[in-house]
Design a protein around this nucleic acid. Sequence first.
DNA 1: AGCATGAATTTTGAATTCAAAATTCGCCGC
DNA 2: GCGGCGAATTTTGAATTCAAAATTCATGCT
Lengths: 208, 208
Amino acid sequence: MDLEHIELTDRIYSRVKKMIFDQELLPGQKLLQEKLSAQLGVSRTPLLKALHRLESEMLVESKPRRGLFVKQMSVEEIIDIFHVRAVIEGLSARLAAAHVQNEHITFLRQLFQPFRDQHPIDYTEYEKADRQFHNSIMLYSGNKIIARLEMLSNLHLQAFQAGLLRPPEETIDEHFNIIKALAAGDGQQAEQFMRNHIDKSREALQNA
Amino acid sequence: MDLEHIELTDRIYSRVKKMIFDQELLPGQKLLQEKLSAQLGVSRTPLLKALHRLESEMLVESKPRRGLFVKQMSVEEIIDIFHVRAVIEGLSARLAAAHVQNEHITFLRQLFQPFRDQHPIDYTEYEKADRQFHNSIMLYSGNKIIARLEMLSNLHLQAFQAGLLRPPEETIDEHFNIIKALAAGDGQQAEQFMRNHIDKSREALQNA
DNA sequence: AGCATGAATTTTGAATTCAAAATTCGCCGC
DNA sequence: GCGGCGAATTTTGAATTCAAAATTCATGCT
């Protein structure tokens, strides 16, 4: 019984995901299966499995009989995602408040500490911290279904790169307020703060 | 250019999904790829693609090197799902209130009309109406991401069959109240009613 | 030159084949 | 009779092959 074995598909999945996040594969680009699988040194079978998984995470899009493409998000879709994020992450914050640990709070604080007096703020670094912040709270919720939806908070990359989102200067305090509510174990307030935080970003997007 | 063509995988996907809902394939049961694909008259390739799609919808579970199984939900997981449903469907109701059509309202009302003075209520029929009600409102939200999460409201089947949920007599009025709020275009209230409705079912589940 | 037609090439979707891991089954000792 | 051991069988994960559809390319026509 070989429980250690890591599936080829899983490794390919991670590599392709990274390629998309690193912009080695660009939004809208067609994914030539033969070429990509050759590049990765595997057959089309595990590559396809990985790509279908990414499709379910909305990073890849399939056009039947046409091929698979790196998903290109429209502003409308990003707005839809933000609506969903607001309520899902609001719920996460509420649930997390009930059983968050001290180490968790410390970790969340430390994520944004470097930017408190950094001028100008390194947007790319801040964006990474932001992603970690949101992903962590979803994990701390302890809800397994939310864990599956984590990808929702990884999808606004394009909007961020296009400069469509609010600048760090505007959001950093909101993050600390959420952390405060979590630390106080106040689920209602944590939920409210998180929802407002994400809703404001959506509104910025809608007015852009 | 053959746009009409329906992929084999898609047909297999629908058939297997139906088999699961119809309990031809039982929760926890192992899915023997060779046998199932033979039954369906296809090779393992399109069957596997379909099963992986169902996996992303949480109807099927994969245990690496062990095989694919019809997913068996634990009560904890169902509770997690209800937490998520409450906020997602609450959001759906709020968004739907903004642009719901008269025909939609009529359709929703007509779903529950038969049960108003039916005694005793046919639980199986009511469950179908309930599913349609929730799915419809998610569609009326107009949010494409919510449409992708529709499956969440199709997953409590087991809980229902186990008699763990609230009886129709208790929920029918809640449904009509939601419809009223939608008809009035009151998004806030529609959201509140929907959240309460689903949260109450979750609480019933937690106390069972 | 620009466009339409159709042949050549590429690429996808599906079936088949193959190797490695897991499961089953029968044998043996106790 | 029961439990463990190992060979036979089954099943999975991955590669390869094959057919059908889509795309590209070349040719000839206006």
